[in-house]
């Protein structure tokens, strides 16, 4: 479209700001909101507050990581909330065999759902939104059946430690999320799989003709996403100290997609911003926290989120039209 000169010459002024906005706007927004809170919200600049916000955002970050990878392949995964519910439902059922077994079964459920999604998308050729809709609808129902439709309290100290324990003064939950962020970023940047993922998302047909195992890449992406969702599911259980299959992860697919999009990852695939996704989730968490701390109604928070999403989409559109 344009000439080589574009990239060589540093763009100047407003145009430069606008071209960077989709990628970095989310950090700007987080910064502004932090500044506002530091000035106007009592007890905001405290360790205990930082702790709470990080703990609350951790499960969304973990789910959003997987979602970002799927969106990077020009897909979408609606089933993450149901996968969380399945994982949550299975945990109390198998705790009798020990923590490791229970977690293993939950993660295995994630792998199974990921395989179903991946095979439907990659081999059967369904559109991702349709393929994952099946589990979105059926997965939670299955979870409710598996758990007998009952909320179950968790008392296993090891599980509870995951949700409320500390390691070196930092919550275990936050450690896990941080490690997963680093891991996913590493996989994306440094591995064969990560680079293939971006190529498949950027131009699936070209990736096929280049001899890439496109189907395998897609299936792996959906498995990773589902496993991350089941991790988030079992961490949620550990945190609320009970397993409620009908409530865990409800509507989280929307929060995750929002975090990914607000973080500057285009829905058209081929590019994934991991740190942006984390910042997107943090931004949404900060909006909710600000609303709660100032005792504003939930509808206000929803409207604020809507505005943020619209701005994010608008900014992304600006970039595309250039």
């Amino acid at each position: 479209m344009t000439k080589n000169a574009v990239a060589e010459r540093p763009a100047a002024g407003l145009a430069a700001v606008r071209s960077r906005l989709p990628g970095y706007g989310v950090y700007l927004a987080v910064g502004l909101l932090m500044l506002y809170n530091i000035v106007f919200t009592p007890y905001f600049l405290t360790l205990s507050n930082l702790r709470i916000q990080l703990i609350q955002v951790a499960p969304i970050v973990i789910v959003a990581l997987g979602m970002a990878l799927v969106i990077g392949t020009e897909g979408i995964d609606l089933s993450v909330g149901s996968v969380m519910a399945l994982a949550a439902a299975l945990i109390p059922l198998y705790l009798g065999y020990g923590v490791v077994a229970a977690i293993g079964v939950s993660l295995a459920a994630g792998v199974a759902v990921g395989l179903i999604n991946g095979v439907l998308v990659a081999r059967v050729g369904l559109q991702p939104i349709v393929a994952t809709l099946a589990v979105f609808v059926g997965g939670r129902g299955l979870a409710v059946v598996v758990s007998d439709g009952q909320l179950k309290d968790i008392r296993n100290p090891d599980v509870l430690h995951l949700g409320s324990g500390d390691l070196l003064g930092i919550p275990v939950l936050v450690w896990i999320a941080a490690v997963l962020v680093a891991l996913v970023a590493f996989v994306l940047r440094r591995t064969v799989f990560g680079r293939r993922l971006l190529a498949v998302g950027g131009n699936r047909r070209a990736a096929e003709l280049a001899g890439l195992p496109v189907g395998r890449v897609l299936i792996t992406v959906y498995v990773i996403c589902a496993v991350l969702a089941s991790i988030a599911g079992l961490l949620s259980v550990a945190r609320i100290q009970s397993s409620d299959a009908s409530a865990v992860g409800l509507l989280i697919e929307l929060s995750a997609i929002t975090a990914v999009v607000v973080g500057g990852t285009p829905l058209t695939g081929g590019r994934v911003r991991i740190l942006g996704t984390v910042a997107g989730a943090v931004l949404m968490q900060l909006v909710i926290a600000t609303m709660i701390k100032h005792d504003l109604g939930p509808s206000t928070a929803e409207m604020a989120q809507a505005v943020i999403i619209l701005v994010a989409v608008w900014v992304a559109r600006e970039r595309k039209s250039r």
């Binding site: 109390p92 198998y94 705790l95 065999y97 079964v105 296993n156």
Partner: peptide, 9 residues
């Protein structure tokens, strides 16, 4: 596997 589930005490 659900058949051989074992909950915590």
């Amino acid at each position: 596997a659900g058949a051989c589930a074992k909950s915590e005490e």
